[in-house]
Amino acid sequence: MTEFEPTIIGFTCNWCTYAGADLAGTSKIQYPTNIRIIRVMCTGRIEPEFILDALRLGADGILIGGCHPGDCHYQEGNYKTELRVRLVKSLLTSLGIEPERVRLEWISASEGQKFAETVQSFVDEIRELGPNPLKKNSELK
């Protein structure tokens, strides 16, 4: 069997983390290919349903990246996200899904290095955890 390659969905805000990911690119900092980013204007846009649905559809991990506290382009979007993510995590725990599959990080537009390091460590962590238990057995191969 080949090594388990997790599929990770990233939701990043346009202003900080998406720009941070771009900076990792312009600086040619290498990180694993497992992450696929969906851009929203602010993490405040992220509906808890997106996270749950993505997990239901087989995502092995969800990385949410927003501006540092106090830096949200829309003032408080990231605070709302923090609350929502906390809610989702407790829900996951009660459903028997590892809450570590959802990670929230504050990564600014100047933190390309941090973005790459975060992806690397998250991929490592999810590899440890193994595939999403909701994924159908047939798809695991």
Binding site: A21, D22, A24, G25, T26, K28, I29, Q30, Y31, P32, T33, I37, R39, A116
Partner: peptide, 16 residues
């Protein structure tokens, strides 16, 4: 975005 968030950050893994 297949440059900043793909080709430039996975330069050694063309297949993936």
């Amino acid at each position: 975005n297949i440059r900043e968030q793909c080709s430039w950050v996975h330069m050694h893994e063309p297949k993936k």
